[in-house]
Simulated assay, not measured.
Amino acid sequence: MDFGFTREEEAFRAEVLEFLTEFRGMNGYFHRGTDTAYGVRQVYRALGERGWLSLSWPEEFGGGGLSPAYEFILWDELAYARAARPPMGPGLVAKALMSHGTDEQRNRFLAGLRRGRINFCLGYSEPDAGSDLASVRTRARRDGRKYVVDGAKCWTSNAHWSDYIWLLCRTGAQDSRSRGLSVLIVPLDTPGVSVSPIPTLDGGRLNEVRFDGVRVPAANRVGAQDQGWQVVSSALAVERHVQFPPKRLRRDLHDVLAALEDAGVAGDPVVRRRMGQLAVRVTEVEALGLALLGEVISGAPSAVPAAYHKLAGTTLAQDIAHAGLEFGAQQALAVGTDTEFLWRQTILETIGGGTSEVMRGLIARQEFGLRA
């Protein structure tokens, strides 16, 4: 297996590093208790101006037609710089529109997504349907040329500054599970939509989005009615390689090492042994990330490699942060320091994008053929 990048891909990495000189220190990857929405939007627009939000889009849709390796490099370096996470719009939403959208939908959204001027959030999880999306209860009832939507979504990232929500809702019977779901594009300024903050453990913000008789044009449905599961699944399959950039872990390790140096304990044999073990595990997760990238590039099924990668990466993120707490002296005790913040933040990583329990279940079912 070849884990290397081509000369052209490494040249692109150099371009990304030069680009990041303007945005280092912005902390758009984390929120740190402040609203960084303006800065993150500026990053997305700057990326869009360079054509970097559509690197792997087919050329027929205005993209670069490049390998997913370019996307991997871009978001890996942005993660190390703590600049921003991959936006949902140019990734999952755009690729779903290319596969399942109408010509009118593509004409309406793709140009703005490519330029970083339209922002989407994902309306998936609900109070009673966290990671079990087949249990979604938010209902969309067809009424002539519109759908009437009632229900609520929870833990929705960036809903307070997005333009649209990519809404997974139920159009079939409640017991239809994944066979009765549809995807609607809902402008967040539509009457009947309300967005409320949900404070998070790391001082950031998620949102509850409620729908009270919201009328959505049927032209905003993506794919056929009751076929939303296929729309969501196919889009997710081509985005797994950028969902948890492994270089974020290397930055975590470097930051904790720097804190331990400041605390005067980095030379302690026990500390050195632990940090050496964590450094080996960072390399292992980087290898898992590259293996996952290889699966995506080849078009092979990537759900299981993605689950392995996310489970290993988010568990390691917690272990790195915990080492900072264990050995970090004053830094570990002071609220608001990088060491203390990192521990609170990494707890959320094992929940977002599918909990660790869901990842283990997926691996057990698909890799080992186990059943509950």
Rank of each mutant, 00 (worst) to 15 (best):
V270L: 08
V270P: 14
V270Y: 08
V270T: 15
V270R: 14
V270K: 13
V271K: 03
R272E: 04
R272Q: 06
R272H: 08
R273S: 12
R273G: 05
R274M: 04
R274W: 02
M275I: 01
M275P: 00
G276L: 02
G276T: 00
Q277H: 10
Q277R: 11
Q277C: 06
Q277F: 11
L278H: 06
L278W: 12
A279M: 01
A279Y: 04
V280F: 15
V280L: 15
V280H: 15
R281E: 05
V282I: 14
T283S: 14
T283A: 15
E284S: 14
E286V: 13
E286S: 11
E286N: 07
A287N: 08
A287E: 08
A287K: 11
L288I: 03
L288M: 11
L288V: 01
L288H: 08
G289P: 00
L290M: 07
L290G: 02
L290I: 13
L290Q: 03
L290P: 00
L292T: 04
L293H: 08
G294C: 02
G294V: 07
G294Y: 00
E295A: 03
E295W: 00
E295F: 00
I297D: 00
S298W: 02
S298H: 06
S298G: 12
G299R: 15
P301Q: 06
P301F: 04
A303F: 07
A303G: 10
A303M: 11
V304K: 02
A307Y: 05
Y308R: 06
H309T: 11
K310E: 03
L311M: 08
L311F: 09
L311Q: 11
L311P: 03
L311T: 02
L311E: 12
L311G: 06
A312F: 06
A312D: 07
T314P: 07
T315M: 09
T315P: 05
L316E: 10
L316V: 14
L316I: 14
A317M: 11
A317I: 04
Q318G: 15
D319C: 11
D319N: 06
H322Q: 15
A323F: 00
A323L: 01
A323R: 05
G324T: 13
G324I: 13
L325N: 08
L325A: 07
L325P: 09
E326G: 12
E326S: 14
F327C: 02
F327I: 09
G328N: 13
G328R: 08
G328D: 12
A329S: 10
A329E: 12
A329L: 05
Q330V: 10
Q331A: 15
